[in-house]
Design a protein around this nucleic acid. Structure first.
Length: 458
RNA sequence: GUGGUUGUAGCUCAGCUGGUUAGAGCGCUGGAUUGUGGUUCCAGAGGUCGCCGGUUCGAACCCGGUCUUCCACCCCA
């Protein structure tokens, strides 16, 4: 008996319309990647486990899909490990490969392995699926695409400025208005922790701070207290919970607040440079917003932190993120190579565009003309005509069988074909073809000698 | 990984405290219409009620497990 087929949790099939929409986004993103001078690379879908494990924190390790070794792997496990029933110690003995969790760490690995062939600064983009053994939710999948652009080997903040421009160009081109690019700096977060006396608790402090817009001031304070941050520290941090005003105003407040921390001051300088640059350069459709509560990717970001929020009113987590990491390739033995990069969350951008109805209508036009099949002789003539159309780049097809007219028309209708071509006995003798406009219902006759007369109207 | 939620026809969903043969709309197939779709009318096909087990004279409905969906945590694109 045939069983009902299914696909794993958090994965999806993509139908033709969906592919057309995905390609639409891909192509726009790619176009701008190229225009900004980025070059594409690809890396394997799976890596050696030690390349990935330990790079994303404990939480990340848990979410990495491990690949079982081939062969009789279990017999090679020593008895002690085997009977310990401890997943953490057993896993490395039965699995030495894992599915890629993001594109940044594999890129770092790539840079180290190919350092002698690469001309630095190296700007690369990469569009490939990644896998996370997460629990799915809306806009959260276990297999999804990331589109990354990173620059390695350049310390200059000019890169940050360019990456923000890149975000701006892509979202403008996608006609997605009201996107905000949130900006912060790891050095500022470290500076704050230093100033309020929570230096040893930086990660807990920032993770809690990151939730400000979600759980409110009281919620954040509560979480910080339970994570061992003192009452005095919280009192000192109070001004941060109510930062308001323009980016410049906030920077001024921060500068003051962080005067006692060298690291903090450097972070402020970084942000100041970037924000000032945009006073001069301007942005097309996005908004740049300083946000000290932003704390992403703390496991490797060391400088700038980016996060892109969908337009107000759209219920969706971040649609992009990125940052600067001074030491990423250091893990793989290459010191002093700075990197900065951004990522587009393709699947989420898709959902946002869908929700706002921003996909061009033309995307579902998968066929420009369909020729009705009237029989053997007629279909041969139709095929010749279709061939001429195809040679000129139009999407043309001939219905494969001499089915009932009604059925063929219905097929054309369901496929959203704008023009149907009829070549029957009458047309054959007159050496002509009839074009029916499926929107208006109008019909026009053209000569088979000169099909361009019709094509020129398309 | 923790807590909750969902699953009935291809799709969206009804289905009473557990009681004969599980329904609707849309879609599909055929006909009205032998060269005209999208509108209309008529007829028809299509369901192991997610899966496995239990309670019961009797289960779509109650219980347990499992898979899936969505949500809140954790974390994150």
């Amino acid at each position: 008996m045939a069983q009902k087929p299914s696909i794993p949790k958090g994965t999806r099939d993509f139908s033709p319309v969906e592919i057309a929409k995905r390609d639409y986004i891909f192509n726009i993103v790619k176009k701008h990647f190229k225009v900004f001078g980025f070059q594409p690379i690809e890396t394997p879908s799976f890596e050696n486990s030690d390349t990935l494990m330990g790079k994303y924190g404990d939480e990340g390790d848990r979410l990495i899909f491990k690949i079982l070794n081939s062969g009789d792997f279990i017999s090679k496990v020593d008895d002690v490990t085997y009977s310990s029933k401890n997943s953490k110690s057993l896993t490395p003995k039965i699995s030495e490969k894992a599915l890629r969790y993001d594109l940044t760490v594999p890129f770092a690995r790539y840079v180290v392995m190919h350092q002698n062939e690469i001309d630095f600064p190296f700007k690369r983009y990469q569009i490939q699926p990644v896998w996370r053994a997460d629990r799915p939710q809306k806009g959260r999948f276990r297999e999804f695409y990331q589109c990354d652009a990173d620059v390695v080997g350049a310390n200059s903040l000019l890169q940050e400025v360019e990456l923000i421009q890149l975000y701006d160009r892509v979202f403008t081109d996608l006609r997605l208005e009201g996107v905000s690019i949130k900006l912060n700096n790891r050095k500022i977060l470290a500076g704050i922790a230093e100033v309020i006396g929570a230096r040893n608790n930086l990660v807990n402090f920032t993770v809690a701070l990151d939730k400000l817009d979600k759980i409110g001031v009281e919620g954040v304070k509560k979480e910080m207290l339970t994570k061992g941050i003192s009452e005095q520290s919280l009192t000192k941090a109070a001004p941060l919970f109510s930062l308001t005003g323009s980016n410049t105003d906030q920077l001024a407040t921060l500068k003051n607040f962080l005067a006692g921390s060298e690291q903090g001051r450097r972070g402020v300088e970084d942000l100041e440079y970037i924000i000032k640059a945009f006073d001069e350069l301007g942005l097309q459709s996005t908004r740049l917003a300083l946000d000290v509560t932003l704390a992403r990717g703390l496991n490797y970001y060391t400088g700038t932190i980016f996060e892109v929020a969908a337009p107000l009113g759209v219920q969706m987590g971040s649609i992009g993120g990125g940052g600067r990491y001074d030491d990423l390739t250091g893990i793989f033995g290459l010191k002093n190579v700075s990197g900065v990069g951004i990522s587009f969350g393709l699947d989420r951008i898709y959902l946002v565009l869908e929700e706002l109805g921003l996909f061009p209508e033309a995307l579902d036009r998968t066929l420009d003309v369909l020729c009705i099949n009237f029989g053997e002789k007629e279909s041969m003539t139709a095929l010749k005509l279709a061939d001429q159309f195809r040679k000129q780049g139009f999407k043309a097809d001939v219905y494969p069988s001499n089915a009932k007219m009604q059925k063929q028309m219905k097929y054309a209708n369901n496929r959203n074909v704008p023009y149907v071509i009829l070549i029957g006995e009458k047309e054959m003798t007159a050496n002509s073809f009839v074009v029916k406009n499926m929107t208006s219902g109008e019909q026009n006759t053209y000569s088979l000698e000169n099909p361009n007369e019709f094509l020129n109207t398309l």
